[in-house]
């Protein structure tokens, strides 16, 4: 039982990592960012490339991936998303397009494959990243043998969730973001540069997705289309938890991850996933605004 709950916890952690960025961008900016999953994918590829070309292990790849995906996020915001604020469905279509472009860019090795040049680590094939020696094997906690890498994922998620919370609730940037979530007009009238704040938020959200990608590369094969399912999972968590609520996102990822693991234990993984969808549908039917929503006048 304990090991099932632990697997659930690590599933929850991945869900949370993907959803954290979405919670902020969807909540704060009202953008359905379908390219968020591709930020996860790009983060994973950063770790693949860093491993092949720099000999850097997964731990070193984490900050690199954060910077790279945050910068790519910034460019996407500047070029496309910025022009689409307030047009929810248009953001969905445009970012979906970006997602496809990014996937193909990896498959076609940024176009180099047309010229017969092949970059090791890119292309349509599957890639693998070795887990550092220190994170292999199992660790014994309370008489239970737990997978060391899963413990690392849970710990990293905890660190990033706390960091995100601190940025949102303890910095002036976070205060600006929260003000924009509730009342963008009033936020601007109070001197907050909404566009600039949104751009930074989008970049940070993308960076978080990139880190999720690196962590995922440690236990999943890396492929150009790995992001597509991630974005669905991410939105599921955000919508279940309540849009704009960081706590809701954390709680929902915990709930869905554990539920998935528990159902998968008594049946199988596919039923487990179906059961998660059933829970999400029920939550949306009963509480359309999500589990944790804003209160107040």
């Amino acid at each position: 039982m304990f090991d099932v709950l632990f697997i659930g916890l690590s599933l929850s952690s991945i869900l949370l990592l993907v959803a954290l960025g979405l919670a902020v961008t969807y909540g704060a900016m009202g953008i359905i960012n379908m390219a968020h999953g591709e930020m996860v994918m790009l983060g994973a590829y950063v770790s693949v490339l860093a491993n092949i070309w720099l000999g850097a292990n997964l731990l070193v790849a984490i900050p690199i991936a954060f910077v790279v995906t945050a910068l790519i996020g910034l460019v996407i915001e500047r070029l496309v998303v910025r022009r689409l604020y307030g047009r929810l469905l248009d953001t969905l279509l445009a970012t979906w397009g970006i997602a496809i472009i990014l996937q193909q860019a990896i498959r076609l090795e940024f176009g180099l494959s047309f010229f017969g040049i092949h970059v090791k680590g890119l292309g349509s094939g599957l890639q693998n990243v070795p887990v550092p020696q220190a994170l292999q094997g199992t660790v014994s906690i309370l008489g239970q043998d737990l997978n060391a890498y899963r413990i690392f994922i849970v710990a990293m998620t905890l660190v990033l969730a706390v960091a995100t919370w601190a940025v949102m609730y303890r910095t002036s940037l976070g205060m600006k973001v929260r003000a924009i979530i509730r009342n963008p007009g009033m936020a601007a009238a109070c001197g907050i540069d909404v566009k600039r704040t949104n751009a930074i938020t989008f970049a940070l959200g993308s960076g978080l997705a990139g880190v999720a990608g690196v962590l995922m590369a440690g236990f999943k094969t890396v492929a150009p289309d790995m992001g597509a399912t991630m974005v669905v999972d991410g939105f599921m968590v955000v919508v279940t938890g309540g849009v704009g609520s960081l706590f809701g996102t954390i709680a929902a990822s915990g709930l869905l991850g554990e539920f998935n693991a528990l159902v998968a234990m008594v049946s199988n993984d596919i039923i487990g996933r179906a059961a998660v969808f059933a829970v999400v549908i029920c939550v949306i039917l009963i509480k359309p605004a999500g589990l944790f929503t804003f209160k107040g006048r």
Partner: peptide, 24 residues
């Protein structure tokens, strides 16, 4: 000028309905 630059030029706004952020 965008709204925030007007605010930074020295205009403050107390809107109808007050525009208080309830969670703040």
């Amino acid at each position: 000028c965008p709204t925030h630059e007007r605010a930074l030029s020295g205009i403050a706004y107390v809107p109808q309905g007050r525009g208080i952020i309830p969670e703040f």
